[in-house]
Simulated scan of single mutants.
Amino acid sequence: MTSRNWLTTLAAAALFPMLAHAASEQQLPSEEGQLTVSTVADGLRNPWALAFLPGEQGMLVTERPGNLRVVNAEGKVGPPISGVPKVWAEGQGGLLDVVLSPDFKRDRTVYLSYAEEGEDGKAGTTVGRGQLSQDLARLENFNVIFRQAPKLSEGNHFGSRLVFDREGFLFIALGENNQRPTAQDLDKLQGKIVRILPDGQVPKDNPFFGKTDVRPEIWSFGHRNQQGAALNPWTGKLWTHEHGPRGGDEINIPEPGKNYGWPVATHGINYSMLPIPEAKGKHVDGMVDPHHVWEKSPGISGMAFYDNPRFKAWDHSLFIGALVPQELIRLQLDGDRIVHEERLLGELKARIRDVRVGPDGYVYVLTDAKDGALFKIGLSGG
């Protein structure tokens, strides 16, 4: 490791002392040597997402029933933060993603996505923002900046991942509420990636801005249920992934105005073992094929690129949680090409809901359970 990389790693450790926390550490096998797995916190109720706070403040963790909590550098789970909006905690709905403003140190703004109930008892994905108080106890001045319309979910497919790009635009990866045809309807926000400004306004260079009978927020369409999204640190492009039905989980690199196929083009079938009624095949002219596809669905959730000097064996890796086989997937990248897949953490027998790379270079995962946990993953020997 170069002296510059050593300095980078030491600086990250100083900023994020959780590096030293090693309660309940165990070692598990991997292709690159022994994994070190430490329990940072447990007793979390269906945790869904996490975001690292700067300095020594720990991280924010969402719990799907509706609580936002701080987990501090010692792994202590704080009480619910006040000022969080009421959520529709039914089925797959509830309090979902959390991200910090790109200028958080100045504006202390936190963005949340969550399921919100409509007048007819159905729900949709909503995004809002508020300022985190200095004592980390409350969100202040919370206001909604985006609502998925119409509200069609009876408890499924909210999507909800949030990503800021390098220019400060906010991408929201949405599910189709288990209403398949809506993913192709450009007058609806189901099954779409939308791109907005931090205050919710629509950028004028969006691909459908100014079009008649088309929602101007739309960036791409034809998606099913997107529960992973991250910005590629080497190219600056958005990557997303989505659940297929029975088979056909996929990764995409969404381009503006493009159609990613669902439900017309899919590698999956219905859970009933019957074909998808609208499907015309795995490839359909005019629709973009997946960048990567799993014919057998891992049930993917969470996504994080590894761009840290701490563990060189993981350089240019993409980590993704897998709910069904209860594993952490590591994809080795060569540019944008996926050249190898490794499955990790199967011994934990835990559904991996979210995965993030900490400023200390460790990989952090949340497990989706009524008694969920936060784990810190590293490699023995560095």
Rank of each mutant, 00 (worst) to 15 (best):
E119I: 05
L331V: 03
K312R: 13
G248W: 07
I251Q: 06
G372K: 08
G281C: 08
Q131L: 03
F142G: 06
Q326V: 00
L379H: 05
K105P: 13
Q332H: 06
L274F: 13
G168S: 07
E119R: 09
D334K: 14
L366H: 12
D285Y: 04
G228S: 12
R330M: 10
R161A: 02
D107V: 13
Q34S: 14
G346M: 14
A322N: 09
P65M: 15
V357H: 00
E119Q: 08
E56R: 15
T367W: 04
G222W: 02
K76G: 01
E154H: 12
I145V: 15
G302Y: 13
A183K: 02
G93N: 08
Q34D: 12
P263T: 01
E342R: 14
R356K: 11
Q34F: 04
S24R: 10
N259P: 04
R180G: 13
R129Y: 01
V70K: 01
D315S: 14
V355H: 03
R224C: 05
G268K: 05
Q226Y: 06
A229P: 04
Q57P: 06
P277F: 05
T182G: 05
L197F: 09
F171Q: 05
H223M: 08
W88C: 08
G335I: 11
G261V: 02
S82R: 12
